[in-house]
Nucleic acid binder design. Sequence first.
DNA 1: CCCAAATTCATGCTAAAGTATGAACGGGGA
DNA 2: TCCCCGTTCATACTTTAGCATGAATTTGGG
Lengths: 158, 158
Amino acid sequence: MVPGFLSKNKHIILYGVSLAVLLFLLKWLELRLVIIDHAFELYVGAIAVLFTLLGIWLALRLSRPKVRTIVVEKEVLVQPQGNGFELNEKELARLAISNRELEVLQLMAEGLSNQEIAARLFVSLSTIKTHTSRLFEKMDVKRRTQAVEMGKRLHIIP
Amino acid sequence: MVPGFLSKNKHIILYGVSLAVLLFLLKWLELRLVIIDHAFELYVGAIAVLFTLLGIWLALRLSRPKVRTIVVEKEVLVQPQGNGFELNEKELARLAISNRELEVLQLMAEGLSNQEIAARLFVSLSTIKTHTSRLFEKMDVKRRTQAVEMGKRLHIIP
DNA sequence: CCCAAATTCATGCTAAAGTATGAACGGGGA
DNA sequence: TCCCCGTTCATACTTTAGCATGAATTTGGG
């Protein structure tokens, strides 16, 4: 920036630098004296600092990370259907419903009339009427619709 | 176990114990000499150990714990049952079933007679008969049991 | 072999369901 | 305003469901 600056102030700069170096040396010597005077304490302090750092390093290095296991419940819709119908034998036994009566109940649940059920089972209409009456009595209902309802609710029919 | 064991071997035991104490004292003195001889090293070593422990303690205390989060997806079976009934609006619209007719169909599915449905809805038996007839016509069935069956199958009723 | 239960069938009757037809009323959209 | 649709009701009739009762036949187990 200023080309002739160094040559013009050579003496002043030299003096300043010399002074600075001298002051630096004095300070350095002072520091050395302090170090020499308190060599033991400084040594111990250095050891303390170093081994503290070592301890920190060891801890960070060797401490196994805390594993926090988070269980996320993932909802999975499952079709329990798959024609999963189990006949409730207990209710069937409790109500004392016979095989034939169960057959009639099943056909009834399909929406067949007594006449159609009779044709399906190769018996007369009277027989079906008897069966249905007994069914209603055993199941404690008054109508075929109620019988079907009850049957489904008790898992007697699908 | 053996009651007279102590009294019988009193002298032997006394001798053994004396020997052991003597040996222990010797060892202790030896240890003291070692300690005195190497006092500085031991001091520094103790400092090192202590500050290492301090470092470890500081690290464990102040460093935020490394948390490795493991997400485990646990499949949970969900019953789509839980009163999960969605009315099938499409089928309802396709069959052009009115609100009132749907009400009648629902009560029919509960096993009520026409008379009971009429009482429940505060209308006459004739009205219910009209509704049921229209229902059977629209659903293309012949009996109430079939209507209920069809309704459940088409998800029009629960 | 015998008995109880299950299955079958019939007859007569009542109640309920279902069909057919007509009509009145009210709300909302063309 | 008029008309369509939903809702309501009635009457008359047919069909089906359900009840009561009795009885014949079969069947499985003690």
